[in-house]
Each structure stands twice: as C-alpha cells, then as structure tokens.
Computed example of a mutant assay.
Amino acid sequence: MREEARTIDVAAGARRAEYGRQGSEPSRPQTPRAATRRKVFSPAWLDTVDGRYRAHLLNLSAIGACVHARCTHRVWSGVTLRIGDRMVEARVTWVMGERCGVKFTQPLTPAELDAATS
C-alpha cells in the first residue's frame, strides 16, 4: 500500500511540473538557481505596462530578484525594477499571489549588487 501511495505522489508532482513547462499554470522554476541570492527587504518601484507600483525586494542576485508588489504580473511580461537610483530591465518568470520572480535582461555587476544590498 505504501509503495502505491508513493507512486501516485510522484505522478502528481510530474503533472504539476509539466503544467509549469507548458505555461498553462505559472509556477516557480524547478531547476537549481544559477546565482546565489541575498535576502533583503528593501523598498523599490516596479514599472509595468499598467503603471508604477511600490514594491519590496525580498531577495536579490546578479541575475534576478523576488519582488512583492500589489499589482498584476504576467509571466514573461517586461518590467523595470527601480532599486535606489538604478533602473533594471527584467522579465517576470513566475507569479505567486503578490510575489513574482524576475530575471534581469543584463546581470548586475558585483559592485551594483553590493550597492543594492548595503
């Protein structure tokens, strides 16, 4: 009986992963992160096609960030993230409620990353 339950759980996980790949149900990426993320909680602005929204960075790396903002995000939509006086172009890669993951179109340099997290 236990082996049967395990098989069903694995199959359900595979279906959830497949939905994410097809794009019909946005989900967090299932692959290891390409860059180390730094935990932060700093104010930012998120510019979308619908307007400018106050946001908070929850974590940040050279190639992306986790952002909390009260606005609608669409997976693969382009956004501009304003971190201090720096504007960073990005694409939304996943959405979960008011949080989203963004991938920068150009990576931050180590100096820019340090400045944004200090």
Rank of each mutant, 00 (worst) to 15 (best):
A11G: 04
A11V: 06
A11F: 07
A12H: 08
A12K: 13
A12E: 09
G13E: 11
A17D: 11
A17M: 10
A17R: 12
E18T: 08
Y19L: 10
Y19D: 08
R21N: 06
Q22V: 09
G23K: 06
S24A: 14
S24G: 12
S27Y: 07
S27Q: 15
S27V: 14
S27A: 15
P29Y: 07
P29E: 15
P29R: 15
Q30P: 04
P32S: 14
A34K: 10
A34M: 11
A35G: 05
R37L: 10
R37N: 09
R37V: 06
R38F: 15
F41E: 12
S42P: 00
P43W: 00
A44D: 02
W45Y: 11
W45M: 14
L46Y: 00
D47V: 14
D47S: 10
D47E: 15
V49G: 13
V49A: 13
D50C: 09
D50A: 11
G51V: 10
Y53Q: 03
Y53C: 05
R54W: 10
R54D: 15
L57V: 08
L58F: 10
L58Q: 11
L58G: 12
L58A: 07
N59G: 03
A62I: 06
A62E: 14
I63F: 08
G64Y: 05
A65W: 01
C66S: 09
V67N: 03
H68S: 07
A69P: 05
R70E: 06
T72G: 09
T72W: 01
H73F: 14
H73C: 13
R74M: 13
V75Y: 01
V79Q: 03
V79T: 02
T80A: 07
T80G: 00
I83M: 02
I83H: 03
I83P: 01
G84E: 06
R86G: 03
M87Y: 15
M87K: 15
V88C: 06
V88G: 01
V88P: 06
A90V: 08
A90F: 03
V92Y: 09
V92K: 04
V92G: 08
W94P: 03
W94G: 02
V95I: 06
M96T: 02
M96D: 09
G97M: 04
G97I: 04
R99L: 06
C100M: 14
G101V: 05
G101A: 02
G101H: 05
V102E: 02
F104H: 01
F104P: 05
T105L: 12
Q106S: 13
Q106C: 11
P107Q: 00
P107H: 01
L108K: 01
T109M: 08
A111Y: 04
A111E: 12
A111C: 04
E112S: 02
L113N: 05
L113C: 07
L113I: 10
D114H: 15
D114K: 07
D114E: 14
A115G: 01
A115S: 11
A116Y: 03
